[in-house]
């Protein structure tokens, strides 16, 4: 089923077209040409309501072709003697276009609503932790040093989490804008991973992360700041789902045409459907319970990888989960560097 999923709109279109052809052929005499034309609008409207412009246009063309071929005299040919039918073709396209544009707008609003509700949840959780813990400290009761420290660690953690979320939102806005917003320069993945790891230096699980980088890895032409966010989000995600003492391994390898980045963490396998969908915005793996993540981290990973014309996928291996990213190398650094004398 997973292979079909990206083409689901087209599968539905095909089924619809077959169905209306069957009905029209069976009741051809009873229905008459005008009603048959109206029936041929059904697939157009159904597909348009899904808000997918591409499949709508395909189904419209299919509908028009079938109608012309099978019912418009002369039948079984594309010749059209009466010019009014040409107009009906245009009307078909106009209907399809208008409805799918409207549907898209409505969908965008729904996404905005989900966005706002997720966002307010993800911001409010750390915020209430900060406020609650701060008010504990403000009360004049004297807590012992260990408790105070625990409370402060909580405040610090929540602050860090909010900081990461805000960074993600800013990047997300930048990526939604256009691709021209990328600030590309020569990036060294070792450098990038180093900066990303800095962000977790106070995390007790940081030492569980091991890094292996191809010694002759070349520089990569990309937006270094975004690539850092990519690694930060991958590590953040891996840390969330990795128990104490278990391993997280980051590796970067390359060949002539690609740079491959793998983030592996020891954990229970992820369900097949989740593997595919977890890069969607605000998708949460429910059975994992509330680990305090936001659905935005992995979707930003996907956006950043896409902006660099790369591919990101997740898969299970024997004792854990791998996130694999492949960037194709389109621009090579020049081989000759000026060596000082």
């Amino acid at each position: 089923m997973i292979f079909i999923y990206p083409y689901r709109h087209y599968v539905v279109s095909f089924l619809l077209l077959s169905m209306i052809t069957m009905v029209s052929q069976l009741f051809r005499i009873e229905l008459g040409l005008i009603n048959i034309a109206l029936i041929h609008l059904i697939p157009v409207i159904v597909m348009a309501l899904r808000g997918n412009m591409g499949s709508t246009m395909v189904v419209t063309a299919g509908s028009v072709v079938l109608f012309d071929l099978l019912y418009v005299p002369p039948e079984y040919s594309f010749d059209v003697h009466d010019l009014t039918y040409i107009w009906s073709f245009f009307i078909f396209f106009a209907v399809g276009y208008t409805i799918s544009a409207q549907a898209k707008r409505i969908q965008a609003n729904t996404i905005k609503e989900i966005f706002l509700s997720t966002l307010s949840h993800d911001l409010k959780t750390p915020l209430s932790s900060i406020l609650g813990n701060a008010s504990l400290l403000l009360k004049d009761q004297m807590y012992d040093a260990a408790t105070r420290r625990e409370v402060l660690i909580q405040i610090n953690d929540s602050g860090q989490r909010m900081n990461r979320l805000v960074a993600n939102l800013l990047d997300s806005a930048r990526l939604q804008d256009t691709h021209s917003a990328l600030r590309k320069e020569w990036c060294d993945f070792e450098d990038i991973i180093g900066v990303a790891l800095q962000e977790f230096r106070y995390n007790p699980k940081e030492s569980q992360i091991s890094v292996r980088i191809d010694p002759d890895l070349r520089l990569f032409w990309g937006d270094c700041a975004l690539l850092v966010r990519l690694i930060v989000n991958l590590i953040d995600n891996a840390l969330k789902y990795t128990d104490n003492g278990k391993q997280i391994r980051l590796s970067v390898t390359s060949d002539a045409k690609t740079i491959k980045l793998i983030c592996f963490n020891e954990s229970t396998p992820i369900k097949k459907a989740d593997l595919k969908n977890m890069f969607d915005r605000f998708y949460r793996i429910d059975h994992m319970g509330d680990i305090g993540g936001s659905g935005i981290g992995l979707s930003i990973c996907r956006d950043i990888v896409n902006a660099h014309s790369g591919v990101i996928e997740a898969y299970n291996i024997q004792n854990g989960v791998c996130f694999e990213i492949r960037f194709s190398v389109n621009k090579l650094p020049s081989e000759r560097l000026k060596e000082l004398q």
Binding site: E185, W186, C187, D188, E190, D191, I193, G194, L197, V211, I213, P215, L219, L250, P333, S334, L337, K338
Partner: peptide, 24 residues
């Protein structure tokens, strides 16, 4: 503006002086 010089030489210098190049 020759950023690639700098990135390349930082990379090789780190390999010679840092114990863990990912955590310089």
């Amino acid at each position: 503006n020759e950023m690639q010089y700098l990135r390349t030489y930082i990379n090789t210098l780190r390999k010679k002086i840092e114990t863990d190049t990912a955590r310089p």
